[in-house]
Design a protein around this nucleic acid. Structure first.
Lengths: 229, 229
DNA sequence: GTCTATACAGGGATAGAC
DNA sequence: GTCTATCCCTGTATAGAC
């Protein structure tokens, strides 16, 4: 993958948009199941119910298809998590109350989303597996569309809350990353990014402990302590 | 990989131990560089300066070789980190002072070890990539020899320190996991488990912030606060 | 009797031709 | 949409060498 100049976005003017969608959706499933190397273009074409020639008409080669799918999957997952964050966090921020409970609910749903939607987690795992073979600019774009975007969205909310005295977040990006570490990364690691099941009870315990630690570090009580100095 | 009964330990009585070592060392490098699927037995034999037939005399097939190498690599990394922990942490525990500084030094060196020894990190990445194809018992053994062993070793030290009032650790395993999350996982994630370089300055900042958060949660001051209630 | 060297059978893969 | 050229991989088999 490393040699060519990664024309991921410039995939030419494809003909039938619905065929293109069928291909990317099938490729998402197959790459997710098998990883990049094991996945075959035959299997993708079959899963899309499309001729292999059609696949090559829409995407120059296997690598281009994979990287396209990876970017798309990251963007979709980010969008879904953004909706989750909006639903769980923004209302609480307005009311100024129950922020801790809102964070706990969001964290739990986020962790469950990883375990439930095997699709996106599997593609993310495939990206991580191939990371040394991915052109730097594409990897950059993937991070930008996925993890970085999620962190920024969280950081923006934390910054607003900090201004309202709902928590401490002098460096919102760092605080957002810390929230993710404490409430998400443990589950992600234990499940190998959604590949293996994790008992619901373990998820709840991990998330609760993470939110608890986060709140002790950055919660409203900490605000009061700092203010009391 | 999933179908057969994973005879990883029962690799038959091979003849020349030095050949076996040459093969496992070469396989560690090749599997680390290429991952399981891309790595070829020809390349491993060449890298070991050994005939391909000899490789198959020592290891039944590619899968057995890979899993053997993965377990070995995990055990070696655990041993190295154990030495690091003994050197950095045990002395501080005895003296009862500068525990925070010892933790900071240990965390920094651990993160640097991941980035420096590409070998073990790369094999761990290959395991994570293949996790869905690895027999459950072998994965269990890998966790046992690697991450779980590391966490237990840390937890044991934390438990001792907690008894001496040097930190709070009602649940040592959870506290050990939290220490790893806060001071290690961020670097691991950002570097894709050692695949990509991370600026030394970023490592230092991340580790320092992580140790700071950990100490606020579990450090001696927290002990005093709890005692003061 | 283990190791080297090499060749080969069988299966799949990509990517392009018809 | 099928067919195929070309390549590579695993695992085995067949030689001979220390």
């Amino acid at each position: 993958m490393g040699t060519k100049e990664s024309g991921v976005t410039a995939t030419g003017g494809a003909r039938r948009p619905e065929k293109r969608r069928a291909i990317t959706e099938a490729a998402t499933r197959v790459f997710g199941r098998e990883g990049f190397v094991r996945a075959s273009m035959d299997a993708i074409a079959a899963e899309a119910a499309v001729s292999k020639r059609t696949v090559y008409n829409h995407f120059a080669d296997k690598e281009t298809l994979f990287l396209t799918v990876a970017l798309q999957s990251a963007a979709e997952l980010t969008l879904r998590l953004e909706r989750l964050a909006a639903a769980r966090l923004d209302a609480a921020g307005e009311e100024g109350a129950a922020v801790r409970e809102a964070l706990a609910a969001f964290a739990a749903e986020r962790a469950r989303a990883l375990l439930a939607s095997g699709e996106h987690g599997a593609v993310a795992r495939a990206i991580r597996a191939e990371v040394v073979n991915i052109p730097a600019d594409v990897l950059e774009a993937w991070l930008e569309a996925g993890p970085d975007a999620e962190r920024r969205a969280l950081a923006a909310r934390f910054a607003v809350w900090a201004r309202r005295g709902l928590l401490t977040a002098d460096e919102p990006e760092l605080v957002a990353e810390r929230f993710t570490l404490l409430t998400y990364q443990g589950v992600a690691e234990r499940s190998f990014w959604g590949a293996l099941p994790v008992p619901e009870e373990a998820v709840e315990r991990t998330v609760a402990a993470g939110v608890d630690a986060f709140w002790r570090l950055h919660g409203a009580e900490a605000v009061r302590e700092v203010a009391a100095l």
